[in-house]
């Protein structure tokens, strides 16, 4: 556990605020995902946790390890970079898969494909 008795107060308060703000944002994202009524609305919700939720918590971790002087705390930035780059990719792939499935099954008010890049077979759902 934390035994740093000489951990400065301002840093403790700042770490606490950052950690709680980050987890609250993630919680709000997940509540949104549970509450919204259709898939395309739900896809917006997790980005709360992956944008500033992650950034706040990672900054809390960096600040804690920087002030307590246990190690040079910069490699958490890798997590931020990694999450920022990968989340849009997964969400876009998932959204395209959902569009494809909704079109083949013709359910929901999904717009029709524009151009020739997506070929939709009407028979045989996924």
């Amino acid at each position: 556990m934390i035994e740093a008795a000489d951990f400065p107060l301002w840093a403790a308060v700042l770490v606490s605020i950052l950690a709680i703000a980050g987890s609250l944002l993630t919680l709000l994202g997940c509540i949104g995902m549970a509450r919204f009524t259709d898939f395309y609305s739900r896809i917006h919700a997790p980005t709360l946790g992956t944008s500033f939720g992650t950034i706040f918590i990672v900054f809390a971790s960096m600040l804690y390890f920087l002030v307590s002087g246990q190690r040079p705390a910069v490699h958490e930035l890798l997590i931020v970079a990694f999450v920022l780059v990968t989340t849009p990719v997964t969400l876009m792939l998932l959204a395209r898969a959902a569009l494809y499935r909704d079109r083949t099954e013709a359910n929901g008010n999904v717009p029709d494909p524009v151009g020739q890049d997506v070929v939709v077979e009407k028979e045989g759902g996924a």
Binding site: H44, T47, T50, S51, M92, D117
Partner: peptide, 16 residues
Amino acid sequence: VTATPGSAWLEYSPTR
């Protein structure tokens, strides 16, 4: 566009 929570990029059509 996707990383912004309020909007999501769904499908790009290179022909149009």
